[in-house]
Simulated scan of single mutants.
Amino acid sequence: MKEVAIITGASGGIGYEIALLFAQKKIDILIVARNEKKLENIKSAIEQQYNITVFCVATDLATSEGFVAINNCVTSNNLSVNYLVNNAGFGDYGFFTERSMEKYSEMLGLNIISVTELTYYYAKQMIKNGKGRILNVASTAGIQPDPYFAVYGASKAYVISLTEAIHKEFENTRVTATVLSPGATKTKFMERADMSDAKLYESGVMSAKKVAQVGFDGMMRGSLHVIPGFKNKLLAFFSSIMPSSKLRLNIAAKVMGRNDQ
């Protein structure tokens, strides 16, 4: 069986950069995103430059068909999944009741259900094979409640909690689960989340390439939780030790507010 790494949300940003890191290690990859043309262009470029095999699955992981499409590719090509990177996800910024419930449902399907499903099925295979690495991409937004980013932050809190729990469960299996929690990162995430006027993105935005390297290295070490950037580590630390939940909320609201507030 051909060993591969699955990377979701691989058509740009952190997912694309992680795909390149696998390619540099001569590890075959299965890249997943909604845009088939982008995936095919990436496949062609990576195969030509790195001489590896790239499989493409164009699907919407927010739907029930997403996992089926990936698994069909895995089984039909007789692939063994040694690495899984659950990177696909999106946010939606604004006052909770002024945003779309339809978008919230889509977000939860992608950020929670898809991550759980892919992790469940491929972790089971990894444990059976006696080896594997899983990287679930969360966010510093998942470390505390986030006014104006409530549903996204809650979904990433789930990802953090799930990954930390199974990391412990997998201790004696030779399979590891790592959670990556980036802060503000220069990708198209901000545009899709309608965050162009959020204070959070005024300064200290990290590059997707740097975040990807931190996450990739952490996964390969089998680390539990990796947070890229000194400022993000500091914010996470103070959030974890702050005694007053009301104080945490006030600070988070200030950080997450709009520039005109």
Score class of each variant (00 low, 15 high):
residue 38 K to W: 00
residue 27 I to C: 07
residue 129 N to W: 04
residue 87 N to W: 05
residue 150 A to T: 15
residue 95 F to Q: 12
residue 120 Y to E: 10
residue 92 D to F: 08
residue 251 I to R: 06
residue 232 N to S: 14
residue 189 F to N: 01
residue 162 L to A: 11
residue 249 L to E: 15
residue 75 T to M: 14
residue 70 I to Q: 08
residue 219 M to R: 06
residue 195 M to Y: 05
residue 190 M to I: 04
residue 150 A to F: 04
residue 241 I to R: 09
residue 126 M to A: 11
residue 173 T to K: 12
residue 71 N to G: 02
residue 259 N to H: 01
residue 58 A to Y: 01
residue 118 L to S: 11
residue 233 K to W: 04
residue 16 Y to N: 12
residue 104 Y to Q: 10
residue 93 Y to H: 09
residue 151 V to D: 09
residue 226 V to A: 06
residue 256 M to Y: 04
residue 182 P to W: 02
residue 140 T to H: 02
residue 191 E to T: 08
residue 215 G to E: 01
residue 247 L to P: 04
residue 7 I to R: 00
residue 175 V to A: 04
residue 61 L to F: 04
residue 16 Y to T: 07
residue 248 R to M: 14
residue 137 V to D: 08
residue 128 K to F: 13
residue 94 G to C: 11
residue 47 E to Q: 14
residue 189 F to A: 02
residue 252 A to K: 01
residue 158 Y to W: 12
residue 160 I to V: 15
residue 59 T to I: 02
residue 216 F to I: 01
residue 166 I to W: 00
residue 73 C to V: 10
residue 50 Y to N: 12
residue 75 T to G: 00
residue 39 L to D: 01
residue 172 N to Y: 05
residue 11 S to Y: 01
residue 241 I to D: 12
residue 200 L to F: 13
residue 174 R to D: 14
residue 203 S to F: 06
residue 195 M to L: 14
residue 33 A to K: 02
residue 85 V to Q: 01
residue 119 T to W: 03
residue 166 I to H: 00
residue 125 Q to I: 05
residue 130 G to E: 14
residue 99 R to C: 10
residue 222 G to F: 00
residue 92 D to Q: 10
residue 228 P to D: 13
residue 255 V to E: 09
residue 43 K to H: 03
residue 140 T to V: 15
residue 159 V to C: 10
residue 235 L to A: 11
residue 191 E to P: 01
residue 160 I to K: 01
residue 30 L to P: 00
residue 173 T to Q: 13
residue 255 V to T: 05
residue 23 A to N: 01
residue 258 R to G: 12
residue 8 T to G: 11
residue 92 D to L: 13
residue 75 T to Q: 14
residue 113 I to H: 11
residue 244 S to C: 08
residue 63 T to V: 07
residue 88 A to M: 12
residue 172 N to D: 14
residue 184 A to G: 07
residue 65 E to P: 02
residue 260 D to P: 00
residue 117 E to N: 12
residue 60 D to H: 03
residue 251 I to N: 08
residue 122 Y to S: 08
residue 231 K to G: 12
residue 202 E to D: 15
residue 76 S to M: 04
residue 63 T to G: 07
residue 66 G to W: 05
residue 169 E to A: 08
residue 161 S to Y: 06
residue 227 I to N: 05
residue 41 N to W: 03
residue 22 F to G: 00
residue 83 Y to D: 11
residue 37 K to Q: 11
residue 155 S to F: 09
residue 114 S to Y: 03
residue 81 V to Q: 11
residue 170 F to L: 15
residue 65 E to W: 05
residue 184 A to N: 05
residue 201 Y to V: 06
residue 23 A to R: 00
residue 12 G to Q: 13
residue 228 P to H: 10
residue 108 L to R: 03
residue 206 M to A: 14
